[in-house]
């Protein structure tokens, strides 16, 4: 099976997101975990449906991008749509943009040693 996103023309990507800019989508980090809050409804865009199915369990933005075969930029825009309408919630990384606190580092060390 070939990756669906690979051969997408920019025009198709434009259509996917309705040509909107990614205002506000910066809130979605690569590792923000996305969780579905409501089931897909008939008539919904297929990429939105796919995201809502995928995120019944927490799923990182980058995993969504890989699975849909779409660039991260495009996925951020799709997620902003879903987030603005309350269909998904976002669990943002606690340590983005600053040094993680010592507790987190300790938890990472313990987790790695237990691998």
């Amino acid at each position: 099976m070939s990756r669906p996103g690979r051969d997408d023309s920019p025009d198709r990507l434009y259509t996917l997101t309705g040509g909107r800019s990614r205002s506000g989508s910066d809130a979605f980090d690569l590792v923000t975990l996305v969780v579905t809050e409501s089931d897909p409804v008939p008539g919904m865009q297929s990429e939105h449906v796919a995201i809502l199915r995928m995120c019944r369990f927490p799923t990182a933005v980058v995993e969504i991008a890989a699975e849909l075969g779409l660039p991260v930029t495009v996925v951020r825009i799709l997620l902003t749509d879903l987030h603005d309408t309350g269909r998904v919630s976002a669990r943002h990384p606690r340590s983005a943009h600053r040094l993680p606190d010592p507790d987190i580092l300790e938890q990472v060390l313990v987790g790695l040693r237990n691998l």
Binding site: P10, S21, E67
Partner: peptide, 22 residues
């Protein structure tokens, strides 16, 4: 898994889908 991010030749991350489209 493999994924990708889009940028323009000028080196700017694409800010909107107009950028992806060009």
């Amino acid at each position: 898994l493999n994924t990708e991010e889009t940028m323009t030749k000028a080196g700017e991350a694409v800010d909107d889908l107009d950028g992806v489209r060009t």
